[in-house]
Design a protein around this nucleic acid. Sequence first.
DNA 1: GACGATACGAGCAAACTCGTGCAAAGCCAA
DNA 2: TTGGCTTTGCACGAGTTTGCTCGTATCGTC
Lengths: 259, 259
Amino acid sequence: MITRERQNRIVRALRSDGAASVRQLAADLAVSESTIRRDLEVLDRNGELTRTYGGAVVHRPGTTVEEHGLGVAEGRFADDVDVDLKRRVAAAAAARIADGQVVVLDIGTTTPLVARELRGRDVTVVTTNLAVLHELENDESVRLILLGGVLRRNYRSLVGSMAVQGLAEVSADVVMLSCTGVRPNGHVVDNMAVEAPIKRAMIAASQQIVLLATERKFPGTGALRLCSVADVDAVVTTEGAPAATLDIARQAGGEVVVA
Amino acid sequence: MITRERQNRIVRALRSDGAASVRQLAADLAVSESTIRRDLEVLDRNGELTRTYGGAVVHRPGTTVEEHGLGVAEGRFADDVDVDLKRRVAAAAAARIADGQVVVLDIGTTTPLVARELRGRDVTVVTTNLAVLHELENDESVRLILLGGVLRRNYRSLVGSMAVQGLAEVSADVVMLSCTGVRPNGHVVDNMAVEAPIKRAMIAASQQIVLLATERKFPGTGALRLCSVADVDAVVTTEGAPAATLDIARQAGGEVVVA
DNA sequence: GACGATACGAGCAAACTCGTGCAAAGCCAA
DNA sequence: TTGGCTTTGCACGAGTTTGCTCGTATCGTC
């Protein structure tokens, strides 16, 4: 059997029961326990479940690699490559943040990975992203400001005018912006109507804009224009991103970081 | 059996009964008492329950870091009597809420109990209380609005001007107000400077005020005046509350509910 | 305050689970 | 087919969990 399909079956089995043992899974899928252990290790690293001694449990809904954020938006399960790309982008982005700075972390699945990198750092994080809250809730060193809003459970975020209003009170050093697509003409776009105004307010509240976009976001999808890559101070991306689009940013004086 | 799953079963068993003995749990889960003791120790340390001699009781809901909130204010450990009083107050308060209403839930340890009672109900909840968020995060039927603010980890709440600003956008049917004390002269007081303005804004945003105060809050402590019991539409309390203070509310046309 | 009963935690041996290294099997392209 | 690569199952040393025993601490009762 193909690895990916087996892993999907494991996730489904866990979803239905909430937990499963290595032995049980090995019996159900007719493979050895070693194989199950290897699969569980991968799935754990991708945040799709939480490994326990002797088995695994479903990850607390939507904490890291939300099947919603990724599954809904892109029509498939997060796969190793994508999560890995995001993790590299997140690490590179976090490295740009200096101690004492105020950072706005956007909605999305990449920003919680940035948040994780910021653990233990002396920074202030502003967000509407509950996954970010979850990452930093117990970290005393990070000052965390949660913008208000209506809870959108599927995306683990807060939206609405309250978030925009709250941003009016914020002055940040940098915003880590995520999006659903970057067009060949340099337009940074999103496909969520409720998020777009918040993203625009985040941009307005921040001195510097850092765009987080793995190669998969070129060109991506989405009709709502947030800004242009020419407006951003830095694009953090991966090797596969098209040079032509990145050049638009470079020519406008923006930095391009390939993680 | 998987450790984690067993611990979840223990917590569930406790939630349904409120308390359980080591012997009973060992029999139910078909493991030795030693194992149960070890599990209880872990769960106690995580704040998910409170160990007692011979068994355990549910920790005051809101879990984990919650003991700071009350531990700091009222002494080290969860107090069975107090939790029980709060639970009764919370149930009586929740019973007052009609379907479709908008409810503001204050900071504190009683309001998460109200939130739990509201699970599955068709209501809108407005709060700065992360313990309330935690209770309702996965309940699709409740519409949840989180006010913004700076995370105050010890008290699992959001404070600051952003919360007050956010409340300006809110029009609620009722606020479930908590406090640290109700003076014999009827003054409802609190001892947290950062919370008082938010509580006042909550009152302003709501048509009706319901004060949640177990008998322990009479007279309680605190120097910051929030309002008078004469201003509230209902006081939900317990048997031991002084009649004289409650009469102030009654004479002003307020309802008094003894849970 | 003393006593018997019960509960507690530490220590220990046995059972179980883990991850890794390795060889065989499976797959793909040339 | 061959050759290179990935995946799988097994063996094994290391680490974790479990149930038992035993000395100590706590509870309820006298």
